[in-house]
Simulated scan of single mutants.
Amino acid sequence: MVQVRIGTDLIEVASIAESCERFGRRYLERIFTPDEIAYCEAGGEEMAQRLAARFAAKEACMKVLRPVGGGIPWRSIEVVKTPEGWVELKLHDSARRLADAAGIVDLSLSLSHERSMAIAVVAATIDS
């Protein structure tokens, strides 16, 4: 039997922009992988929107993974842009272990952002 888990998150772009301004590089490197940072920085004026969408993706993914206790490191969930322009999730370390333990065999991601808001939806297929 196949099960599905859905996670979603909506975030104000301004909250991410404020964190970047207040904490700088330390904030970016705590939350995002080097590849995520490079992609978002290349977005120019869209940098905060891109970061917010990726932050929302990480939150939505955590809702799917359902960590018990304290959560998992932000950077163990990575948003990757495919050559075709789609986005995918790549899990590392503790996030990968949680997904494996839950029987998650596939993750799908959808992102959207505009000037003030960003949203992400994550769907997980579980083979039970």
Score class of each variant (00 low, 15 high):
71 G>L: 08
45 E>Y: 07
31 I>F: 10
56 A>T: 00
64 V>C: 13
7 G>F: 00
61 C>V: 02
66 R>W: 02
71 G>D: 02
40 C>I: 02
106 D>A: 15
115 R>M: 04
70 G>F: 10
65 L>D: 03
40 C>L: 03
7 G>S: 02
114 E>P: 07
83 P>H: 09
64 V>P: 10
25 R>K: 12
58 K>Q: 07
127 D>Q: 12
97 R>M: 08
88 E>T: 04
115 R>T: 08
126 I>C: 13
98 L>Q: 06
7 G>R: 02
2 V>L: 14
60 A>M: 10
46 E>Y: 11
35 D>L: 11
88 E>L: 12
108 S>R: 14
18 E>G: 08
119 I>W: 00
51 L>N: 06
105 V>F: 05
113 H>M: 04
122 V>C: 10
55 F>R: 08
25 R>A: 13
57 A>L: 10
19 S>F: 06
32 F>R: 05
5 R>M: 06
100 D>Y: 09
90 K>M: 10
97 R>L: 11
109 L>E: 01
95 A>V: 00
15 S>C: 13
125 T>S: 14
12 E>Y: 13
74 W>Q: 05
43 G>E: 09
13 V>K: 09
2 V>Q: 12
66 R>S: 01
3 Q>P: 03
116 S>N: 14
58 K>I: 03
128 S>T: 15
72 I>C: 05
112 S>C: 11
128 S>Q: 15
30 R>L: 11
3 Q>I: 09
124 A>I: 06
13 V>N: 10
26 R>H: 14
18 E>R: 13
99 A>G: 03
13 V>M: 09
55 F>H: 07
1 M>S: 15
31 I>T: 14
16 I>Q: 06
82 T>C: 08
76 S>T: 15
84 E>T: 11
111 L>H: 00
27 Y>Q: 11
110 S>F: 00
42 A>I: 00
54 R>S: 01
33 T>R: 05
25 R>N: 14
127 D>Y: 09
1 M>I: 12
125 T>V: 15
30 R>S: 12
62 M>P: 02
49 Q>H: 04
124 A>E: 11
55 F>W: 15
51 L>E: 06
53 A>M: 07
120 A>C: 04
51 L>S: 00
24 G>F: 10
40 C>D: 01
6 I>G: 02
88 E>G: 04
58 K>F: 04
50 R>Q: 12
118 A>T: 00
90 K>G: 05
102 A>K: 14
43 G>K: 14
96 R>N: 02
